[in-house]
Design a protein around this nucleic acid. Structure first.
Length: 859
RNA sequence: GCUCCCGUAGCCCAACUGGCAGAGGCAGGCGACUUAAACUCGCCCGAGUCUGGGUUCGAAUCCCAGCGGGAGCACCA
């Protein structure tokens, strides 16, 4: 501070940070440079594939898009600066219901509506400046794309993975249409709010359940690379449970009935059997029981089927059911078990029938108490369990307690089923065993007698992919009266979607495509006779299940994707998107990837190596919505603050996976920071070839600490911390200019250059302009990340904290290379320490050189 | 009901995974520049980490219990 510097900013526009001018200036120049095209011939850089979940073209970008694409772009730009050829493509998930709904409501063409939206949204994207390789842009609604959906369908069909069956599907009685599971919100239709019911229809499915074990087990590979929340949700959704299938003889029936149970150890506690009322089995059993039972059952079934999802959602409601006047025989003890039909048993899980053990299952107990059925305890949950050896509990006199008098509470009285571990009682050969051992032994027993075996079941159901909708991929199947289902030959693909013109798109329970007779009536590819095309279209989740592969060769008209390109780029290194797709999309993409692996097209089994889920942008503590009047419009924010300030604000707000409350953040503050950084680039007065070594060491230390730390922070998605560290660097530079060595110092130029280079991740326009003002050619996006100088990372001296009994008593300035012994001597010599220790005896000295010494005294 | 995650300055968030609770921002205060204001620049103010136990030389960090908030699943045998 001994010398003076002229730090007065020059007046005039040259020193006014104007984000709009920067955007106008750089956008056309970048587009001319086209720096983000990946996979150029001869490019020898290592590769990275960074992918954002592609958007549905709703017309404009919103804050959620800004956040997600902003994060994806940080990662893409980062890897580019680390020397990678980065593939960062973009496309449009452009099939789907909103286009069709708009068409119905306003009488417009779904195609025109969709492509208009894309054009509009693309314009917003340009200003927001993500570093996309636009040359690979795809639209799932183009025949060039969906023809490969059809190809995929045919491959799955050949494998028996795509199949048609009749099943219970979600049905909206108001809209007269089938709904996907994801379109049922709390039992209501997401479009009209009507209560959803079930209807039996013949639909196309993909056999996801065949892959259940792999989908579950392979999640272990993703541990630590995917959010644990998503892994948990997928595990939960797949819901594997292990147990046994047990076969019961039925009086008056040839074949035995299988039930699935996770508790074969409690077989001796079974007191009745329950079948799902809406299963064929229930109908058959009732039919065999005489007219009175049949009538009772019919009434009950009718009642069950008229129930809405809402009713079924309530687990609290009382149990209902009817006795079928039939009996099953318990295979382990020959007991007669009455058979009931009750809707707490689901037709499509396990075998649609259960053995009821009311003493040890809460649902069975509730049912037993409602209908006064017997309850038999077979596990003494009060008995201590020691490893594999059963321990017989003693009573207060030291006498071993006999099994029959052991349990203290009777579930029939308390209403609480005993579900814990314990010692088997009243169970013949299983008596005395622990739960785990009893399960094993029960399965052995059943296997010996040929009445059961170990078994697994899943909560996961097969994927219903057919939709009675227009705006989707036509299913490439032809129905022939003679030949049945005939797949469209591959060389006749694509089956193009007919024009919407003249079709009635209103939902009426059948596919609009069925009304396009010219389109639907075709000759059977097999026999040449009259036949009709399948009129359903595919779930749009089929489109998104493999799109990451299409980007690799988006223009190739000869195949869905090139396995050689897949070998080069895939799997995706970094996937970014919303947690709302935690199950459906991600599960389907994982499934399709495994199928393609099995077919020999891919060499990997998981599509997305690492996953980042961004949180939501909220306002005033709650989700933004028009009705709440707390909407933050992306377009308005962009106009007010510009791309860079928005992107910095989103990156700086907190951990990316947390929700961002727009009321808590300050885009104005971000703009100030950017202006501050930008101004520095105009003040630097040293030449581009200045020697760094001559620069101010204190500032250089800050710069190089940043260079050393930022990569790890970016890779850990701690974008907020990187921005904070950049702010620190800018503050330090400002200080060096104003009250340090001044704007001409080499360290100031170095800091400004590093700031520009790093700001490229968050604020591309500001970074580029700084780069130019510092004397470089565009583009900073391709400038390589500087290596930190290790000699600048070690301090000349560090502060050692000296504690006595954990409390800080002194600080010592020492060399970072100080030895443990030396440091201990220094600490012991400290006057403050000696005063603090007093005359107490020193029990232990912990030295963590060079940072800390803790002296523990005997107390 | 079950499972998981999170509680740090007025607010948003850091803290090398056990070693000085503060990197950064917002808000607030003071000052410089200005006729004044805005802008800009500088300085300042700030919690002992939700509560109660435990482990440890040492706990925001690990363990147990509770309180508060959020998310997912919910008759899946």
């Amino acid at each position: 501070m001994a010398h003076e510097h002229d730090t007065t900013p020059q007046s005039g526009d040259a020193d006014q940070y104007d984000f709009a001018a920067l955007q106008d200036k750089w956008l056309p120049r970048w587009e001319a440079l086209d720096p983000f095209r990946a996979g150029r011939p001869g490019d020898t850089r290592p590769r990275k594939y960074v992918l954002d979940m592609f958007p549905y073209p709703s017309g404009d970008l919103h804050m959620g898009h800004a956040e997600a694409f902003g994060y994806g772009d940080i990662v893409a730009r980062y890897w580019r600066q680390q020397g990678f050829d980065v593939l960062h493509p973009i496309g449009w998930d452009s099939f789907g219901l909103p286009a069709e709904n708009a068409a119905i409501k306003r009488g417009v063409d779904p195609k025109g509506w969709t492509y208009d939206n894309i054009a509009q949204q693309k314009a917003s994207f340009r200003t927001y400046a993500p570093s996309f390789d636009w040359s690979r842009e795809l639209h799932t609604s183009d025949p060039e794309y969906y023809t490969w959906n059809q190809w995929l369908f045919l491959k799955l069909y050949e494998q028996g993975i795509a199949y048609r069956k009749e099943g219970q599907v979600n049905w909206c009685p108001n809209d007269q249409t089938v709904l996907a599971n994801e379109q049922v919100i709390d039992g209501h239709c997401e479009r009209c709010g009507f209560e959803v019911t079930k209807k039996s229809l013949t639909q196309w499915y993909f056999r996801v359940t065949d892959y259940a074990d792999r989908l579950l087990d392979d999640l272990n590979q993703l541990e630590g690379r995917w959010p644990s929340k998503v892994l948990a949700m997928q595990r939960n959704w797949i819901g594997r449970s292990t147990g046994a299938d047990v076969e019961f003889e039925i009086e008056g029936r040839e074949e035995r009935i299988s039930v699935f149970t996770t508790r074969p150890d409690t077989l001796f506690g079974a007191t009745f059997m329950v079948v799902a009322p809406d299963s064929p089995l229930a109908a058959e059993l009732a039919a065999g029981a005489g007219p009175e039972v049949q009538e009772r059952f019919g009434t009950y079934l009718h009642q069950v089927q008229s129930e809405t999802e809402i009713d079924r959602l309530s687990a609290e409601r009382p149990k209902t059911g009817v006795f079928l006047d039939r009996y099953a025989i318990n295979p382990v003890n020959g007991e007669r078990l009455p058979i009931w039909a009750a809707d707490y048993v689901l037709a499509d899980y396990g075998h649609g029938a259960i053995m009821a053990v009311p003493a040890h299952d809460q649902r069975d107990l509730d049912f037993a108490r409602a209908f006064d059925l017997p309850v038999r305890v077979v596990v003494d949950t009060n008995a201590p369990i020691t490893g594999a050896i059963p321990v017989i509990p003693l009573d207060e006199h030291g006498v071993p307690m006999l099994p029959d008098e052991a349990p203290s509470e009777n579930p029939a009285d308390t209403g609480e089923a005993l579900t814990g571990d314990g010692r088997m009682i009243n169970s013949g050969p299983l008596d005395g065993l622990s739960k785990r051992n009893a399960i094993r032994k029960a399965i052995d027993l059943l296997a010996e007698r040929g009445t059961g075996r170990a078994s697994k079941n899943y909560r996961l159901r097969d994927w219903l992919i057919s939709r009675q909708r227009y705006w989707g991929t036509p299913i490439p199947i032809i129905h022939c009266a003679e030949c049945g289902e005939v797949p469209v030959p591959e060389d006749q693909l694509p089956v193009r979607l007919p024009d919407a013109e003249g079709l009635d798109l209103r939902p009426k329970g059948t596919s609009p495509l069925g009304g396009a007779d010219d389109w639907a009536n075709v000759a059977c590819p097999k026999c040449g006779g009259d036949a009709r095309r399948d009129s359903d279209t595919m779930d749009t989740f089929v489109d998104s299940s493999w799109y990451y592969l299409r980007y690799l060769n988006a223009d190739d008209p000869t195949r869905a994707f090139d396995p050689a390109e897949a070998e080069k780029w895939a799997p995706v290194d970094q996937y970014v998107g919303g947690v709302e797709h935690a199950i459906l999309h991600l599960l389907y993409a994982r499934f399709v990837t495994k199928v393609l692996f099995d077919l020999g097209y891919l060499s990997f089994t998981e599509p997305f190596t690492s996953l980042l889920n961004q949180g939501m942008v909220i306002m005033d503590g709650s989700k933004m919505s028009k009705s709440k009047g707390n909407l933050v419009e992306f377009a308005g924010e962009l106009r007010a603050h510009g791309t860079d300030a928005l992107r910095v604000t989103l990156a700086f707000a907190g951990p990316p996976e947390d929700d961002i409350d727009w009321a808590d953040v300050s885009p104005v503050g971000s703009a100030k920071f950017l202006a501050r950084a930008w101004r520095i680039s105009g003040e630097v007065s040293s030449p581009t070839d200045v020697e760094w070594k001559g620069g101010d060491v204190a500032l250089r230390r800050v710069t190089h600490r940043f260079l050393a730390d930022a990569p790890g922070l970016v890779e850990a998605f701690k974008f907020n911390v990187v921005v904070a560290r950049l702010m620190e660097l800018v503050n330090a530079t400002r200080k060096a200019i104003d009250s340090g060595p001044g704007a001409g110092d080499a360290a100031v130029r170095e800091a400004a250059e590093v700031t520009a280079m790093a700001l490229n991740l968050f604020a591309p326009y500001t970074a580029e302009d700084m780069w130019e003002r510092l004397g470089y050619e565009p583009t900073v996006a391709l400038a390589q990340w500087r290596k930190a100088d290790p000699t600048l990372l070690v301090e000349e001296s560090v502060t050692t904290v000296v504690q006595v009994d954990g409390k800080v008593r002194d600080r010592l300035e020492v060399s970072p290379k100080v030895s443990t012994d030396e440091l201990e001597q220094l600490a012991r010599a400290s006057a403050a320490v000696q005063r603090s220790v007093g005359d107490r005896e020193i029990a232990n000295v912990i030295v963590r050189a060079p940072k800390l010494v803790n002296i523990a005294t005997r107390r």
